[in-house]
Write a protein that binds this DNA or RNA. Sequence first.
DNA 1: CTGAAAGCGCTTACAG
DNA 2: CTGAAAGCGCTTACAG
Lengths: 360, 360
Amino acid sequence: MDQNFSRVKISDIAAQAGVSAGTVDRVIHNRGEVAPKTREKILKIVREMNYEPDILASTLASKKNFRFAVLIPEADASNPFWQTPAEGLHDAWDEIRHFGITLEKHFFTYHDRNAYSKKLENIINSHPSGVILAPIFTEQTISYIPKLKKLGIPVVFLNTRIDNQDNTAFVGQDPIQSGKVAARLMDYGLDVDAEIFIVNIISEIGGNSHILNREKGFRQFFQNINNGYKKRILHTININSQAPDELDLILQQKIGTRNPGLCKKGIFVTNSKVFQVASWLEKNELTNYTLIGYDLLEQTQQFLKKGVIDFLISQKPREQGYTSVMALFNHLVMKKQVIKDQFLPIDIITKENIDFYINQ
Amino acid sequence: MDQNFSRVKISDIAAQAGVSAGTVDRVIHNRGEVAPKTREKILKIVREMNYEPDILASTLASKKNFRFAVLIPEADASNPFWQTPAEGLHDAWDEIRHFGITLEKHFFTYHDRNAYSKKLENIINSHPSGVILAPIFTEQTISYIPKLKKLGIPVVFLNTRIDNQDNTAFVGQDPIQSGKVAARLMDYGLDVDAEIFIVNIISEIGGNSHILNREKGFRQFFQNINNGYKKRILHTININSQAPDELDLILQQKIGTRNPGLCKKGIFVTNSKVFQVASWLEKNELTNYTLIGYDLLEQTQQFLKKGVIDFLISQKPREQGYTSVMALFNHLVMKKQVIKDQFLPIDIITKENIDFYINQ
DNA sequence: CTGAAAGCGCTTACAG
DNA sequence: CTGAAAGCGCTTACAG
């Protein structure tokens, strides 16, 4: 039955096979030093009796320890997103630490690729049991994959996916698809002839692949729509600057002065910087815009609640952290098969459901 | 440090206190038979050394077993919703069964209150370690709460919340708030003067509190909106019938013949029966409606993908099951403090993000 | 009220 | 290649 945890133990197998528990153990864990016939015999009985090891007893006896090393961006005022994945990592660790697991967190900044490489190298040299990585810097990351592989250290990618790599798992969101979700919301809410602005606010050296892919998905949505009458006009606005005044100026120029007074327009901001656009709209009392962006930061939440932002898309940052640790745990400790691409849901957040998503 | 699992063990405490491990154990588990001064002394050292028991060793040694009894509606063709919570229950059990936990599932039908009572009574009389309950029948449930309490059997409410009860936890969605989410989506997508129909399709004896509360929340949203110009016209249509033909007739009469040709109208179906309304719209080639409903069943999914349904709200059925088991586990086995009201997120599902929610 | 001993199921040297 | 013994940290009778 489903509900009954197998009570067959090693001693049962040993008795059946007429050998000692130690020999059974050697077979089960493929530790060699067992005669082929003995091995086969034991294996057969293991299968017949449907033996499942007691993972608790195993962990207790083996005194094995696991070190999970984490390398993610440092959370700070200009980059608060990374606070929450760190909490998720910690929560998961708290649930599994009984199994002799330690979690080491290391941080890097978006500004320094070399520091990232250096830290990753140090981590690898310390021979952790597994690594959880936010591989913002793609090339640097790829260059270390062979070494990790050689040392047999499994690696989980967090938040950013890299194609064709030997990672144990990826945990994060599909950015192209999330762009499509944003597009659906725009399309549903706007008149047929409404203009739409895609605003990319790029303020860091790295980590822009998400932005590009979200725009890509957003545009794909409108290409795929086959009710041809909906010829949406999409403008992309790329902004590097971070100074609020400068940003306002650009927005004013590119959006504010454009066909004022016509029907409601849409603005899709491809990351959490949507709060800066919201701030501009609010200051200038511009209400005739639908505004959609990303992430539940303190600032974005405020503007959603005020109604300046209409929808936010959440990346489930806590769950990203949580799920990454669990992927490593299931792979390393539970020896379960782990799903390689773990795409987390693309949550649509409004004023009405936000309370249930905070801290997810 | 955060990351270091305490390595103090009972023998360390015992040595410090100059007693045996057995005595320390008695103190830690409040099993009495210890002299007050000894007790105090040990307690002090436990605190000082920051002792945390090794839950694995404890579980292994104690040979304790836990029986979790579940009582939920039977999933069948007319009520497929309950398939998924059952899967979530099973998934959670699979993760924790090492701790000597068995999961017993019992089922009831919406049609028979007495059978529900009877089953609940039988479950209680079998003295399980804890109970997980879908308390569809409120009164019947409440009448058994004192008995559960007396026997010290913790109970977790699944999907339906009952006020002011001594349950260990509730896991489910806030139906009033979910109605507001639906209202937000309607309001965002419809013209100011569009008519909106609220359709309650009631096909069972019990389980209608969700429907009522969803309508309530939906209406509250429009009452609270203070941009007075948006005077929405809301019609409620209550339908008891289940026969498709009859249903179509009623919909045709109440919705289909009403101001045809005017601007897009909204239909909010307060449960998963939204697929029946979708089917009616499709058959009659009525495209000028925004349709919002609940739950990711096979039928609702199809209509969402076809574009007949615009949005679905998911109750996260799998997570409901999963979280219920974990609540009981954390309470009973891990002896952690468990949050009483665990409201799960109100997920907004579209054609674009549905793939990431299936089986949640 | 307290301690010594055996045991939970598995793993790890060690001896042969 | 194999077995006997000790041990992981905690709990459970049992004896006193």
